[in-house]
């Protein structure tokens, strides 16, 4: 695909005081979703900015999922799947990795910046790894500033709804 990049708008300087990023996480039910659950039962502290969308497999993800989440007001998006080589559907997480890479290019092209999207891998037993991913992504987005799509701090519920709309679009 032909693509060009537009320099992402730097919102880090103009971020409103008390800016709290909205992060949407697409999590595989076999690993990251269970890891998030485990993090909860282990009473691990992790960023409350993350809203989780459970998927059967990260191989279900599609670039439109991410774009819709950003359109809806997410400041950052991450995908969390099983360790490479451990996907329940053999290579769903490897597909997801490729799609995340592709969508980073699309976000660069738009000018939102591919750095606002990331892929993580973990197993169901790694509650701490999920918590670390959530915190790392929140910190990364905090330093990047709010999504250039809107000046006001994100509305987490709207971003989550938009993310779900994206899932629906891709399933249609």
């Amino acid at each position: 695909m032909m693509s060009d990049e537009r320099e992402a708008i730097d919102t880090s300087e103009t971020a409103p005081a008390g800016f709290e990023p909205v992060i949407v996480a697409f999590c595989c039910q076999y690993c990251a979703y269970a890891a998030a659950d485990l993090a909860g039962s282990m009473r691990l502290q992790y960023s409350p900015n993350v809203r989780v969308v459970r998927l059967l497999c990260t191989g279900k993800t599609d670039p439109i999922f991410f774009l819709k989440a950003f359109e809806g007001g997410a400041d950052g998006v991450f995908v969390a799947g099983c360790m490479e080589g451990n996907c329940h559907f053999v290579e769903g997480n490897l597909r997801a990795k490729q799609r995340v890479q592709h969508a980073k290019g699309l976000l660069d092209e738009v000018g939102i910046g591919g750095g606002r999207l990331e892929m993580y891998n973990m197993s169901a037993g790694e509650g701490a790894k999920f918590a670390a991913a959530a915190d790392e992504m929140t910190e990364r987005i905090r330093s990047l500033g709010p999504s250039p799509l809107r000046p006001e701090p994100g509305d987490a519920e709207a971003a989550l709804q938009a993310a779900l709309d994206g899932v629906e679009v891709a399933q249609a």
Binding site: M1, P63, I64, L67, E71, E109, I112, P148, A170
Partner: peptide
């Protein structure tokens, strides 16, 4: 994979985001 329904969704989304920005 250049101009089907999925690609329409992606391009429409990219254009909406650009317009908003």
């Amino acid at each position: 994979m250049a101009g089907g329904e999925k690609e329409v969704g992606v391009l429409a989304s990219m254009l909406r985001m650009r317009a908003k920005m």
